[in-house]
Simulated assay, not measured.
Amino acid sequence: MRLTTHIDPGLTQAGSASATVRALEISIAADRALVAEVRHSVRAALESWGVGAIADDMAVVASELASNALKHAGGEATVRLRLAEGQALLEVDDSSLRRPVSRRVGAEVEEGRGLFLVQALAADWGWRYRQGGGKTVWASLPAPAECAA
């Protein structure tokens, strides 16, 4: 299967007996058409977890990071979304060692603004190399206070 989704709504966060972690993991093949499925899955998960207020912004962030991973790494990518302790964290793993770089593009260029969107929408974002190769690009958004993750 080219797109797999796994939701664990009742994981317990390490070191905490009471904090619940909700998680979604999506593995996508090197097909940029699957980015729409990632966007839809992230939005649906956040809405089902009671944090629909951030669903649209996080869906855009997921779309941009997944699209960048598939475009620049040229292989499969894994998208992980976690909701815990009032924070939504999205991580995208790919096989590339190239660090993500925001670049300036002219008004006539149709792409190249993904990281600017991520910077504008996310409370924080960054990247790190993964042990064994590749990198993880991540972004976080605070969940609404009324959410009981």
Rank of each mutant, 00 (worst) to 15 (best):
G74C: 14
R113N: 11
A59V: 06
H6K: 09
G134W: 09
L70N: 07
G106Y: 07
R82D: 11
G132H: 10
T20L: 14
A33S: 15
Y129I: 09
S67I: 05
R82H: 11
Q119Y: 04
I28F: 04
E108C: 02
A107K: 15
S102V: 13
A84I: 13
A55T: 04
Q131F: 00
V109A: 05
E76C: 00
P100L: 09
P144C: 08
A17Q: 08
E37N: 14
E110W: 03
I7L: 08
G134K: 09
S140C: 12
R43K: 14
S102C: 11
G10D: 15
V101L: 15
V118R: 01
L121Q: 07
T20D: 12
S95R: 12
S67D: 12
Q131Y: 00
G114R: 01
V51P: 01
L121A: 09
G74Y: 14
A77W: 01
G50V: 06
I26V: 13
A33H: 13
R39I: 10
S27M: 02
E110I: 04
A62Q: 02
A123H: 14
G114W: 02
L81D: 03
I26H: 01
H40K: 05
F116S: 10
A122N: 07
A55L: 05
L90T: 04
G114M: 02
H6W: 00
A55Y: 03
S41D: 10
V35E: 00
D94K: 04
A73F: 12
E25H: 09
V79T: 02
L65T: 07
A62H: 03
G74P: 14
A30M: 06
A88N: 08
S96V: 06
D56I: 04
E37V: 08
D8L: 12
R2P: 11
G134E: 10
T20P: 09
L65E: 04
H6V: 13
I26G: 02
L121I: 12
T5R: 10
K71P: 06
F116E: 12
L83S: 09
L34W: 03
L90R: 04
V105P: 02
R103S: 09
A139W: 03
P144S: 09
R82W: 07
S63N: 05
E25W: 05
G132K: 08
V92W: 03
D56T: 10
R104I: 11
A53K: 07
A29I: 00
H72Y: 15
D56Y: 01
L83D: 02
V60K: 06
Q13R: 14
A148W: 08
L89D: 11
L89I: 13
H40I: 02
T5H: 00
V38M: 03
L46F: 01
L117V: 10
F116R: 09
L3G: 01
V79Q: 00
G52Y: 06
A59Y: 02
A62R: 01
R98F: 04
A45K: 03
R104W: 08
